[in-house]
Design a protein around this nucleic acid. Structure first.
Length: 643
RNA sequence: GCCGUUGUAGCUCAGUGGUAGAGCACUUCCUUGGUAAGGAAGAGGUCGUGAGUUCAAUUCUCAUCAACGGCUCCA
């Protein structure tokens, strides 16, 4: 007998060799039908694996992340089985579970998979799932495994085997499909009730663009049709929040073939948002002791040789233009220009910290396949600033920047993000990273200390730093799930040396300043793209392109509507009138859909009393009040930047 | 940059080897209506661009551009 400890602390005895599935059955048949995998002493294994000694057991079902990923991993195998029947001779690479479903990479030889094939494969998968095939696990020696795949002529699995040791090689089989796999898997294919293959894509073998491109099929499965329907409905909802759709609907920005890919044109509504953001940034930065600067969009080649950006990053810059025998580049970053401003006048320790800020326009030649609405563009406006400080000042400066981030995030109600502390890899010093081991160590620990002291939750990642120093990135996700760096706060101990920047310290010696690059609001492009999705197009009052729409009941009240609108406009509130020959219901509906924060219905009653009937977007009728009171309330809310 | 898909009116989308349609939006008229769609009429498209096949191409073929889904990249 062995002792099994359950998550609630209960301990029960079972025969040696009992499976998690058996244990589940002993609790209830209903539970047993839901078990996908088991966690035994913290390790996720097949629910059908015999347990040979005392263990702590947790049964994993659909509600557990590990249960889900086991389910999806098994679904990938089911898909592979279907693919093999439709495309005999197909060779498989890897087929893991991902955040939403699974994929399998495969080599189809000369054949191509089409969208129709996906429907066919779905049908086949449904048939196979209904066959009630159990997943079975088999331990196999490396020699036998190599022989098996040699026979199949499967160079991909042979490549995988190369990295594996004898004793850790297992095969999993369901139905007619056997795969090299470390598992775990769900007990039976019949658990997979709803299947949707979502897309076909190319993927480089081993993620290396020099390698062959394999066919990747993405899919997702669920234990019931209802859950699949809900998932698809959720995807539809997410699409409605997509900044590309909202940006068009709300007249924020547009793209034009004649202008070029990745070059957004900011329309009047988008420009209002830009101006509000800049106003906020300028207020905040002025209060924090920053000075503003303005620099040209181009610079000579020599500056980028000094900065070290050429030749390494030339591919990401627009090709140079020749002028008077010189090469000029469009700037991809503002830093070098700012360094030149620092260097223009001699500095002493009394001038530090020297903080200069600019909403700088940068151009980056992003790969065509990478462009993505406003999130990834070729022309961007960065909320940039550089802080030149001494080592003694660094900690406080870095902390102040971090606090500025948090202040902004509070204003915008940004809660779902991850702060990522990117560190260097010491083995790559002198190659990928500037060879300053001491400075790396010093600044990394200072940056970490800032995060710890301010109680900012963060994750650490190795080998992700900039070449000139560690950094903190703020990661966010677009509505379709793609990850982006929204804001960044970077340490740079290299540019000071490269640009021969110095200040006179208290001992009358020249010292190289440390530099902080920071962009808490990222770029206008990415930030506004993010805000569109974050607010689903319903901007807070202070940032809404149109704040109040006046809706006269009929054209009899047009004059009063103009009076109301003029009063608001004079007070600095963005307002307009819906003078269309439409009924009030129609005007309200259209204004609601245009996501205007306030609607003022004005008719005879309002006109006689100098009142307005207030409607708030999404909240309906709020009753009547005097125009004066309304104006005051709106101004207060705008001033507070309430979100 | 690579693999795949797509490109028809401002938007969402039908459709066809014989030079195009719907709904919404737009314009005009009727209606002057009190809190999420009043009615009628009208205007609007070299069917992404270029070439080829054909008596004839928006439709078939090729090229090209762009967008979309991934991969790679992201100082």
């Amino acid at each position: 007998m062995i002792k099994i400890t359950f998550p609630d602390g209960a301990v029960r005895s079972f025969d040696e060799g009992v499976t998690s599935l058996d244990i589940a059955k002993s609790i209830s048949e209903g539970l047993a039908k839901k078990v996908l995998a088991a966690s035994i002493d913290g390790v996720v294994v097949d629910a059908f694996r015999p347990i040979k000694q005392d263990a702590a057991l947790r049964l994993l079902t659909w509600v557990d992340t590990d249960g889900k990923s086991t389910f999806w991993h098994s679904s990938a195998h089911l898909m592979a089985e279907a693919v093999e029947s439709v495309f005999p001779g197909v060779k498989f690479w890897v087929g893991p579970a991902v955040e939403n479903g699974f994929y399998y990479d495969m080599d189809l030889g000369d054949r191509k998979m089409t969208e129709e094939d996906l429907l066919l494969l779905e049908k086949k998968m449904n048939e196979l799932a209904k066959k009630n095939s159990s997943f079975t696990r088999k331990e196999i020696s490396k020699t036998d495994a190599i022989q098996y795949f040699n026979q199949k002529g499967d160079e991909y699995k042979l490549d995988l085997l190369e990295g594996l040791q004898d004793g850790e090689i297992t095969f999993y089989t369901q139905g007619d499909f056997t795969d090299l796999c470390r598992g775990p898997h769900i007990p039976n294919t019949s658990l997979i009730k709803a299947i949707k293959l979502t897309s076909i894509a190319g993927a480089y073998w081993k993620g290396n663009e020099k390698n062959k491109m394999l066919t990747r099929v993405y899919g997702i499965t669920f234990p019931s049709q209802k859950e699949l329907d809900e998932y698809l409905a959720m995807l539809e909802e997410a699409k409605k929040r997509d900044h590309r759709k909202l940006g068009k609907e709300l007249g924020i920005y547009t793209m034009d073939d004649d202008v070029g890919p990745g070059l957004p044109l900011w329309m009047p509504n988008g420009t209002i948002i830009i101006e509000e953001l800049e106003k906020l940034a300028k207020e905040t930065e002025t209060a924090a002791g920053y000075k503003r600067v303005v620099t040209p969009h181009i610079a000579k080649e020599s500056m980028y040789l000094t900065s070290g950006h050429l030749p390494y990053y030339a591919d990401s810059m627009f090709p140079p233009m020749e002028m008077d025998g010189e090469k000029y580049y469009l700037k991809a970053m503002n830093c070098p220009h700012h360094h030149k401003i620092f260097d223009a006048e001699p500095k002493s320790y009394k001038d530090l910290p020297y903080r200069i800020a600019e909403y700088g326009t940068c151009y980056r030649y992003e790969q065509s396949g990478e462009l993505f609405g406003l999130m990834r563009v070729r022309c961007l406006h960065m909320n940039d600033a550089h802080i030149y400080c001494s080592r003694e000042q660094f900690f406080d400066e870095f902390r102040a920047v971090n606090e500025m981030y948090l202040k902004y995030f509070k204003i915008f109600g940004i809660e779902k993000y991850v702060m990522r502390l990117s560190l260097h890899d010491p083995s790559k010093l002198g190659q990928k990273y500037v060879n300053e081991p001491t400075l790396w160590k010093e600044t990394e620990s200072m940056v970490r200390k800032v995060l710890v002291e301010t109680g900012t939750p963060f994750v650490e990642v190795q080998d992700e730093a900039a070449f000139y120093g560690p950094k903190i990135d703020v990661q966010i996700w677009s509505t379709i799930g793609r990850e982006f760096t929204l804001a960044t706060n970077q340490v740079d101990f290299n540019s000071g040396i490269k640009f021969k920047l110095s200040y006179t310290n208290t001992n009358n010696e020249a010292e190289v300043p440390l530099i902080i690059h920071r962009a808490p609001l990222g770029t206008h492009e990415r930030f506004i793209g993010f805000l569109l999705e974050h607010y689903a197009g319903r901007f807070p009052l202070w940032i809404a392109p149109l704040q109040v729409k006046v809706l006269p009941i009929s054209d009899k009240f047009s004059a009063y509507a103009h009076e109301v609108c003029q009063t608001l406009t004079k007070a600095g509130i963005r307002s307009s009138i819906d003078e269309r020959n439409e009924k009030i219901g129609k005007k309200i509906r259209d204004t609601e859909l245009a996501k205007v924060p306030f609607m003022l219905v004005v008719g005879e009653k309002e006109m006689l009393e100098n009142h307005v009937s207030v409607r708030r977007q999404g909240h309906g009728d709020l009753g009547t009040k005097s125009l004066q009171d309304f104006t005051q309330e709106v101004l207060t809310e705008i001033q507070q930047r309430k979100s």
